[in-house]
Design a protein around this nucleic acid. Sequence first.
DNA 1: GCTACGATAGAACAACGTTCGATGCTGTGC
DNA 2: GCACAGCATCGAACGTTGTTCTATCGTAGC
Lengths: 236, 236
Amino acid sequence: MAHPQNRPGQGRRRASHSMESVLTETVALLDEAGAPALTFRALAQRLGGGVASIYWYVANKDELLDLATDHVIGSILADIERLPDSDDPIDDLRAMALALFDAIVDRPWLGAYFMRNTDAQSNSLRLYERLGRQTLRLDLTPRQRFHAVSAIVGVVVGSAVDLGQEPPQEVLDGAVDRDQFLGRAAQAWRELDPKDYPFVHEIIDEFDGHDDADQFRSALELTLAGLRLQAGQAGA
Amino acid sequence: MAHPQNRPGQGRRRASHSMESVLTETVALLDEAGAPALTFRALAQRLGGGVASIYWYVANKDELLDLATDHVIGSILADIERLPDSDDPIDDLRAMALALFDAIVDRPWLGAYFMRNTDAQSNSLRLYERLGRQTLRLDLTPRQRFHAVSAIVGVVVGSAVDLGQEPPQEVLDGAVDRDQFLGRAAQAWRELDPKDYPFVHEIIDEFDGHDDADQFRSALELTLAGLRLQAGQAGA
DNA sequence: GCTACGATAGAACAACGTTCGATGCTGTGC
DNA sequence: GCACAGCATCGAACGTTGTTCTATCGTAGC
């Protein structure tokens, strides 16, 4: 697909890319500075080329994001395919979901684009297949299997969206870090009237200094417990 | 907060708005044509005023979206507060989650901005409180309560994100409707090798012509079943 | 009537995605 | 060796967006 082999040296004027390098630099840009930093001009500068050149590889920005997303999902998929099957398909589902979540923690921008377009994202489909295959080992109807995988993906996406929120400017500036920011929100909650907000006060200490991973694991555990019940399995 | 009472008549040149009218028209614009249609120029035209005037009411577009989101969540909250408490807190949680989901089906753009910023979105916090209050009726630790509400909100958001995806251009044009579009994707899946994609083939008929509401209800049911188990309740 | 200020608006700015047209590079047929 | 074709590149320009600047209008209080 991409003919021009990279010959970097010799102080050339014209840059020569490849689909691979475009996607690699796109992901690097997203990793380093988040989604708003991904502009065609910034990407072109990184690639040492012109803006319009990128359009030779992708039709538009949506496609660029789809391909970049699929690119990293490819490596996540490789990790997941490396996981060995255990006796318990639900344990395997948990392990896969956790691997997925960990990858999104490393790349918060993924949350927004994850599983957006299964046409351009063939690795997403492979991942979906891989998750679903575990449900084939459970005693369920096809419809239940379909819904089970949707539910698990939904839990991951639901948590990922939380993580993917662009933090306010003051956090990006480094003036305050994420914990301080959340702590400040917690403080505002504490000042609410306990009569009007009994639940908020009940959980305020849990919210303050909470761990996103714990939160995700708990949500996942509820879904998996429900699934285990549905499959008529007694317990682990 | 907003002094100028609307006196619409008399062929005036200068428009006079109010926070209320700005948010109402913002929501109307979002409802009619989705998030990409919301521009300051389009909004100003609807309001019969100038672009810069909007900046007297909101600091920037993010705040406009936060306030508009909170505005509609206010009416959702009113619906939810109207729901009577039953014997079973989990039944009540289900009813509230379903009401929430229905509202997002009507306004797919909500999914993207839902519960983004609890500072500017005071109704979101009230909604969160309302959900959590049901968990106070269950035998759980504060941490479990916190995670339970997060999980339920996560399921809603996870499903909402699916719904909130801007459909491809051909669907917006009306050339093909959403069912046809999904049916075409299903057809592509059918052509995959069943050896490589056993799960996809297992559930392809379920996917084709599936109902989003069913999908959401199933995911919610798994979480609620897990929660019931955790609370040590025998069953409904 | 004058003034202070709440509220409005047009014009301009910078940044973005995208398109256009021209230009360079490289392998192929003679 | 040379022209040609087409792949790949790039600078400049276009239209649209969020946002800011500055000037202006209208009304409440002296």
